[in-house]
């Protein structure tokens, strides 16, 4: 199965990726090849097989309900490009 331009456009949008024209053309071609390659999975004898989500067969461990983290905002926010009064800034969101 191959992907058309509209599909690649849609995927890039879902993934929030801006692609240059060359990248876009290359993506259409390469993604099609990848999808064609993984298509062979359809032939695997999976009737009745339970999907495997984890390589270990363990149950989730639970944490005690304790506050262990304090305020480290100022240090952490040194990695952010745009902050003001402790808030992370983004172009105005319209709800």
């Amino acid at each position: 199965m191959s992907l058309d331009k509209d599909q690649v456009q849609h995927i890039a949008m879902l993934a929030r990726l801006r692609l240059s024209d060359t990248e876009f053309a290359e993506s259409v071609e390469k993604l099609s090849r990848i999808v064609a390659f993984v298509d062979q999975l359809k032939n695997a004898p999976t009737a009745g097989v339970v999907p495997m989500a984890h390589p270990v067969n363990e149950a989730q461990r639970l944490r005690a309900d304790e506050v262990t983290e304090g305020d480290d905002r100022d240090r952490i926010q040194q990695n952010a490009v745009s902050v003001s009064d402790g808030l992370y800034l983004v172009p105005k969101v319209i709800e």
Partner: peptide
């Protein structure tokens, strides 16, 4: 779109798109 488009390289973008698909 631009932060991710400019910040990630081609192979990473390709894998993100494959996974999204």
């Amino acid at each position: 779109c631009r932060s991710r488009g400019e910040g990630f390289g081609a192979e990473v973008k390709r894998r993100i798109m494959t996974g999204t698909y």
